[in-house]
């Protein structure tokens, strides 16, 4: 390395890793100060690499980088939070990876988003302690609004009039709740119960920690989840990879043929 190379420090969460060549990897980092960026770690896959454990996806680390010609290069990394409990539970891990994928999809390179950074760490801290998996819903709602896709929950998304208390049409395409008179104008949507609407309104203003204290029964959570999934699909224009994975874990696994071994079941590939 030449002495002239510019270097900098930044704190960030590792969103993903891609292997490069024999021993290198490219990591996507979401940093508090720099926003999202890719950087390369040379020799990180060799057994004696000092940086390896500090650059695992989902790790929050203090990173030292040197500016490179194309990609910046990691020179050092130290773990701030490994979120170890998240890695030891398949459902928590799947949800954490899904949220990281959302961050990756909702952000552009080198555009700092400190509020979203805090939100991601709040989520990971929640999953690392014993917050319920429903905090994923709060994360979905908040990443939408932090990215400028606020869901209309008080006024009709089409005409702006106040939404009276009651079950109401939710249209992701319209951008939120749609009042009864406007219903014919909304192309698609699903009916949301008063309870689901209240959960969404609460998620809008609550912290992840506060949302974790909310008791949601399964049916209610599924209702909220479907509405948010609609909204996210509307923005991203396609399914998330990890999202499909979370679904496949939640879905009861389908049959490989019942056997003496019991209920060994299998979920077939979706889509193909």
């Amino acid at each position: 390395m030449t002495g002239r190379a510019r270097s900098y420090n930044t704190e960030g969460v590792i969103l993903r890793r891609r292997n490069l060549g024999e021993a290198d990897s490219i990591f996507t980092v979401f940093s508090a100060r720099e926003g999202k960026f890719d950087a390369i770690a040379r020799g990180v896959r060799k057994p004696r690499s000092h940086m390896r454990g500090h650059l695992e996806p989902l790790t929050r680390s203090q990173l030292h980088l040197a500016q490179g010609r194309n990609l910046d290069v990691f020179t050092q990394a130290e773990t701030i939070a490994a979120y170890r409990a998240v890695r030891d539970d398949l459902d928590r891990l799947a949800l954490a990876l899904y949220c990281c994928e959302l961050v990756d999809r909702f952000t552009v390179e080198r555009a700092p988003q400190p509020l979203l950074y805090d939100l991601l760490n709040e989520l990971l801290e929640g999953l690392d302690s014993d917050a319920p998996l429903t905090i994923g819903r709060a994360f979905e709602l908040r990443i939408l609004s932090l990215s400028g896709f606020e869901i209309q929950l008080s006024a009709c998304a089409l005409c702006g009039s106040r939404i009276p208390e009651g079950d109401t049409l939710f249209s992701a395409m319209a951008g939120g709740l749609v009042c009864d008179p406007c219903r014919p104008k909304a192309e698609t949507g699903r009916l949301l119960s008063v309870r689901a609407i209240k959960v969404l309104r609460f998620a809008r203003s609550a912290t992840i920690g506060q949302f974790a204290g909310l008791r949601l029964d399964e049916a209610l959570e599924r209702e909220v989840q479907r509405a948010l999934a609609d909204a996210i699909r509307q923005v991203l224009d396609r399914e998330t990879n990890a999202g499909r994975y979370v679904d496949s874990l939640a879905r009861p696994l389908r049959d490989t043929g019942r056997t003496a071994a019991g209920d060994v079941q299998w979920s077939p590939p979706s889509g193909s």
Partner: peptide, 25 residues
């Protein structure tokens, strides 16, 4: 291996064959 972020799911690796194989006890 599973790689949720890149869309590599259980159906993309040889997990099914293992489950079937274990059924002989």
């Amino acid at each position: 291996v599973l790689n949720p972020m890149d869309g590599v799911g259980p159906e993309d690796i040889r997990v099914r064959e293992l489950i079937v194989r274990l059924q002989d006890g």
